[in-house]
Computed example of a mutant assay.
Amino acid sequence: MFFSNIKIAEKYNYLEEKFTCAYKWLAETDLEALPVGSYPIMGDTVVANIQEYTTFPADQGSFETHEKYFDIQYVVKGREQFGVCKRDGLVEKERIEENDLIFYEEPEFSGSVFLDEGDLIIVAPEDAHKPRCQAGGPCQVKKVVVKVAL
Rank of each mutant, 00 (worst) to 15 (best):
Cys133Asp: 08
Gly111Thr: 11
Ser112Arg: 03
Asp116Asn: 04
Val84Thr: 01
Pro107Gly: 02
Phe56Gln: 15
Val123Gly: 09
Lys7Phe: 12
Cys139Asn: 14
Glu80Asn: 07
Thr20Cys: 00
Leu115Phe: 03
Ser110Trp: 15
Lys143Pro: 03
Asp30Cys: 03
His129Arg: 01
Asp116Ala: 05
Lys130Ser: 14
Ser62Gln: 14
Lys93Cys: 10
Gly136Pro: 02
Asn13Arg: 14
Ala27Val: 02
Asp88Trp: 00
Lys142Thr: 12
Leu31Phe: 01
Ile96Lys: 15
Asp44Ile: 08
Tyr14Asn: 07
Pro107Tyr: 03
Arg95Asp: 03
Thr45Cys: 08
Glu28Thr: 15
Thr54Phe: 12
Trp25Thr: 07
Asp71Gly: 00
Asp88Val: 10
Asp100Ile: 04
Val75His: 01
Val47Phe: 00
Phe109Cys: 04
Gly37Trp: 09
Pro131Tyr: 04
Pro57Lys: 10
Tyr74Gln: 00
Ser112Val: 04
Asn49Arg: 10
Glu64Phe: 02
His129Asp: 02
Ile96Glu: 15
Pro35Val: 04
Ala149Met: 02
Glu64Thr: 09
Glu52Arg: 14
Gly37His: 08
Val84Phe: 04
Arg132His: 12
Lys130Val: 05
Leu15Arg: 11
Glu117Trp: 05
Lys142Gly: 12
Thr65Leu: 05
Ala33Val: 09
Gly43Glu: 11
Asn5Ile: 02
Ile8Lys: 06
Tyr69Cys: 03
Gly37Val: 13
Tyr23Glu: 07
Glu94Arg: 13
Leu120Cys: 11
Val141Arg: 09
Val91His: 11
Pro131Ala: 05
Lys77Tyr: 01
Thr55Leu: 10
Trp25Ile: 09
Leu90Phe: 05
Pro40Asn: 04
Lys86Ile: 07
Ile72Gly: 05
Ala149Arg: 15
Val146Phe: 06
Tyr104His: 06
Trp25Cys: 12
Val113Gly: 00
Gly61Leu: 03
Tyr53Ala: 10
Tyr104Asn: 06
Glu80Leu: 07
Pro125Ala: 02
Phe103Cys: 09
Pro35Cys: 06
Phe70Arg: 08
Tyr53Val: 03
Ala58Cys: 06
Phe103Met: 12
Val144Leu: 04
Met42Asn: 06
Asp30Asn: 15
Glu67Asn: 07
Ile8Gly: 00
Phe70Lys: 02
Leu31Val: 00
Val46Lys: 04
Met42His: 02
Lys143Val: 12
Val46Ser: 07
Pro40Thr: 07
Asp59Pro: 10
Val46Met: 02
Leu101Ile: 09
